[in-house]
């Protein structure tokens, strides 16, 4: 049996010519197209094109291992999966590629990054544009702008729709009408960070949200209005 315990993982074994010697039962789910033993591994895994020199370094023990993280693959069912590849020399002329499914982790991370990046993009646009009412109005995302004390002074149509408030009912109200008040103690701490909160709609429906928060004026953070961009937490990718 192999010296490397790969019994519980999906894997491929390849030779120096990058031909597949052996494959685990379910490894095909990570492939770009169907793979067979005896084929060039690059046909099913285009990620390896360009990495030939690194793989030869591993074969010749100049390099102990190599890892590629968070590779995204669209599947037939129109869903995405994410996986890590770990390349390890098992024995002379036999290199093992271990597959690690990191889909769940990356779905979660994608949602957080989406909110954080959108927040920064919108904050930059608003800070450079006096007509920020129009920018907020045109947003398809859940977006709130508060003063530094948490009083809402602008809200996007998507946010109104989600929380079931009218514009008049939300403007000049404290953001605690939406958030658990206890979370607001951390107001200063959450700037630049993601905040997972349970929000409540006007009709008392609970919604799990991930918010990203940034000061609009990064030069004067303490006095700046704050921008919140939120997403419903659905740990599934589109």
């Amino acid at each position: 049996m192999n010296s490397l315990d790969i019994s519980s993982q999906e894997y491929l074994a390849i030779d120096r010519s990058l031909l597949i010697l052996e494959k685990s039962l379910m490894v095909s789910k990570f492939a770009d197209r169907p793979i067979e033993v005896g084929e060039d591994v690059r046909c099913g895994f285009p990620e390896l094109i360009g990495l030939e020199a690194i793989l030869q370094e591993i074969f010749s023990k100049q390099k102990l291992s190599f890892k590629l993280k968070d590779i995204c693959r669209y599947c037939e069912s129109n869903k995405s999966i994410y996986f890590n590849l770990n390349f390890i020399l098992e024995m002379k002329d036999r290199l093992i590629i271990l597959f690690e499914d990191v889909t769940a982790k990356n779905f979660k991370y994608q949602q957080k990054m989406q909110a954080a990046n959108e927040c920064k993009l919108i904050a930059d646009r608003i800070s450079e544009n006096n007509n920020f009412q129009e920018i907020v109005k045109s947003q398809k995302t859940v977006l709130l702008i508060t003063d530094r004390f948490g009083i809402i002074n602008n809200i996007s149509p998507a946010a109104l729709n989600l929380f079931k408030y009218s514009r008049n009912e939300s403007i000049d109200r404290h953001i605690s009408i939406l958030f658990d008040r206890n979370k607001l103690i951390f107001f200063n701490l959450v700037i630049h960070q993601n905040l997972e909160v349970i929000c409540q709609t006007k009709t008392k429906e609970n919604i799990y949200m991930n918010f990203s928060c940034l000061p609009i004026d990064s030069q004067q953070e303490e006095d700046s209005d704050l921008i919140f961009v939120g997403q419903k937490i659905i740990w599934r990718i589109k």
Binding site: I71, C72, Y74, Y82, N106, Y109, N117, E118, K238
Partner: peptide, 13 residues
């Protein structure tokens, strides 16, 4: 026009 942030890497041919 919709912005969808990329995570990790996606390879196209």
């Amino acid at each position: 026009d919709e912005y969808l942030s990329t995570v990790g890497v996606k390879i196209s041919r």
